[in-house]
Design a binder for these strands. Structure first.
Lengths: 224, 224
DNA sequence: CGCAAGGCTATTGTTGACAATTTTATGATG
DNA sequence: CATCATAAAATTGTCAACAATAGCCTTGCG
């Protein structure tokens, strides 16, 4: 049995780094199932890597909150729980609300232009697949991602884009997140950008919080 | 030269874990200076560990945001910047405000009792060292730590207690954080607990945000 | 038949050595 | 004297082997 090929990434990255990125994807998309045990020898063989390199990647995955490790026992993929999902959205509401306010305060013309262009692309794409969920692909992610980038707070950007969003994606992939009606999500996104453009941080924060809270309540309803 | 002894921890923890905890402390307290380069062979010798074990610890430190690594070059301790400090307080304001609101919503009698007891100890201690900064030792941390614990949101607890607070401590140790007048901080803490006790989440959040924002403005003033 | 004790097996913990790369030192040349 | 090329040294990347531990399987006893 030949070793599986790593995700095609810059080969300039170190092996542990490529393992980390690849495994992160496998976990997020559920190809390594939530709650399952990680076998170091098996994974190392699978990617033609030594256990040492693999372990460095596992350490990073643990820090990311995607793995839980116990001494002399090994690593398991975290479980997906309703509580975890609700907690996640609660934190997102606070942080992305803040990101919106900051984006409005520091609003730069480039950011505004890019945000509108992105929304335009989403609109186009949406019309194409008429009715299909605007949320399903990366469209929604693009939006939230961009907003956060515009906040100008590196810690906030790192916390959301390099940590929490992987959890969000993991829940979406595996619990099949709710797809709010495309129309509505699109209009909400549009209003948020407007508020940012006007430099109205207070309104932008309020709209984003409401946007996320609506998703959260949608989830709560769906879970009952 | 004999190897330095690791921090005395549960010996049941793995070596990389103990290295991680020890190094985290060294970096936070500035014994490994901010911005300095990490030499793997040197550190490994210093703690009588192999480079492999050390590298696993370094990976975790990088994920914590205390190290920056570049391929084939090595790791450096992060720099402390004014911007980073202000960003940090901005995020704290949002997250700890949220923690307060949740603590008020889920308020349990045990939490309230513990919070008052803790404040009592702080008062006692403060009277003892009459006028000496209440903020300097771990007093302030106890308070914020406890509040967050009472929020009942595991993700929030992890983000603040296992990630951001290490940065806060690092800045405090090394930039000599502002010590707001003990009296005032104490009174503010007291009011926050009252609001939580009354189950008034809105007020609790507002007070905590103001509390942290005051610290932030204090820092801004001191930096000019 | 249930259960405890002890040994076997597979997994994790840890190490030292080798390969590849960067940095430093050296020296030749304009 | 500055600068560039080259060689040497040190550092990081990667691996395979050994040690220690946990989980299982068998075996013996009540």
């Amino acid at each position: 049995m030949q070793g599986e090929t790593l995700q095609p990434l810059e080969p300039s990255l170190s092996l542990p780094e490529r393992l980390f990125v690849t495994l992160r994807g496998e976990i997020v998309e559920g190809r390594i199932p939530a709650g399952s045990k990680i076998s170091e020898p098996e994974l190392a063989r699978r990617f033609n890597a030594s256990r040492g390199s693999l372990r460095e990647a596992l350490m990073r995955l643990e820090s990311l909150g995607l793995l839980e490790r116990r001494v002399n026992v090994g690593a398991r993929v975290v479980d997906l729980t309703e509580r975890g999902l609700l907690d996640l959205y609660e934190v997102r509401e606070a942080l992305e609300g803040m990101a919106c306010r900051l984006a409005a305060q520091h609003r730069s013309d480039e950011d505004i232009t890019e945000l509108w262009q992105m929304l335009g692309r989403h609109e186009q794409q949406e019309e194409l697949q008429a009715g299909r969920a605007y949320f399903q692909p990366e469209g929604d992610f693009d939006f939230h991602f961009r907003i956060v980038q515009a906040s100008n707070n590196d810690l906030l950007i790192d916390t959301l884009c390099n940590r929490l969003y992987y959890r969000v994606r993991m829940y979406r992939y595996q619990l099949g997140m709710p797809s709010p009606r495309a129309q509505r999500a699109f209009r909400e996104h549009s209003h948020i950008i407007e508020a940012i453009e006007m430099g109205d941080g207070e309104l932008a924060e309020l709209l984003m919080r409401r946007h996320i809270r609506a998703s959260r309540q949608n989830i709560e309803k769906k879970l009952r």
